Simulated assay, not measured.
Amino acid sequence: MKKYINYKLILVSLLIIGFSSCNKEKETSKEQNEELFKSAILKHLNAVTAKDSNALKSTMSPNGNMELIQPSSEILYSVDGFMKFHQDWFKVPNWTVDTKILSTDIGNKIGVATTEFLYKEPERNGKPYFNRLIVSYTLEKINNNWYIIKDHASSIEKTKN
């Protein structure tokens, strides 16, 4: 009887360990984590540059949480608001944007990327227009994938209207 109880306890213990390990996210190395983060932010920046709404949407949190902070605008608090803003912006003709990642700070669950945007229009009010912005992004890791949850833009230098 004693051996039966020990085997039963061992079996129950193994089942508990097995089920609890199923709920954990797959662990990644620091290098893998940084690569996944950089890939996510580059996908996002490339989607903006290409005016690709579908690719942009794929970089957004599946939970729907998002903060978009733009100069002279109220904060938008959802992926839907973020997408509406960008879809309207993507309809503006003839603009281009060059992006550059300036710095990153990547944790296990939250990371931040600071970028530079150089937005250009060949003609606005009869002359060329540019706006150099610093845009910081906060990303959250969900199910081992990084997603944008905050976009905060500050205009540094731009053409006078």
Rank of each mutant, 00 (worst) to 15 (best):
E25Y: 09
T114G: 01
G107V: 03
K100E: 04
Y77C: 10
G81Q: 11
H152W: 08
A40I: 08
I10R: 02
L68F: 04
E74Q: 12
N125F: 13
V135P: 01
G107E: 00
P62Q: 10
Y137P: 00
V135C: 08
T59H: 03
N145C: 04
K150D: 04
L139R: 00
V92C: 06
D52G: 13
E74T: 10
S13Y: 00
K51I: 06
K91R: 13
L45N: 12
L36F: 03
I75Y: 06
H152C: 08
I149H: 01
N63G: 09
I10S: 06
Y77D: 14
L15S: 15
D105G: 02
G111N: 02
Y119W: 12
T159E: 08
T59G: 04
I17T: 09
L76P: 07
V48E: 15
N108F: 14
E27D: 14
S39V: 03
D80W: 01
S61D: 10
L76E: 10
L14K: 03
L45W: 06
Q87M: 14
F82I: 07
L42Q: 11
M1D: 09
A153P: 06
I41N: 00
R124D: 03
L139M: 05
S136L: 02
P128Q: 02
P62H: 08
G126L: 09
D151V: 02
Q70K: 11
L68W: 01
G107R: 04
T49V: 13
Q70S: 08
A47E: 12
I16R: 06
E74G: 07
K141Q: 14
S21I: 05
I5A: 07
S155M: 11
V48R: 14
T28A: 10
S53I: 14
F37R: 04
D88C: 03
I156D: 11
E140I: 07
N143E: 11
I149G: 01
L45H: 09
N63T: 13
Y7F: 13
K127D: 07
W146Y: 02
E123W: 03
N125Y: 06
K109P: 06
A50I: 13
S29I: 09
K160P: 14
Y137V: 00
P122D: 05
S155Q: 13
G107S: 05
N108R: 15
N63L: 13
F117T: 05
Y7V: 11
D98S: 05
S21E: 06
S155E: 09
D98Y: 05
G64T: 04
K141T: 02
I10M: 08
I149N: 00
L118H: 14
Y7E: 07
T49C: 09
Y7S: 11
H86G: 02
I75H: 12
E34W: 01
E157W: 15
E35L: 10
V79Y: 01
T138I: 12
L68Y: 01
S20D: 02
W146E: 00
F130G: 09
A47M: 11
G18I: 10
E157A: 15
R124L: 12
S58R: 06
N144I: 07
L68V: 12
L139S: 01
K160V: 15
L76V: 15
I148N: 00
Y119I: 15
V12G: 03
K57C: 04
G64E: 09
K26E: 07
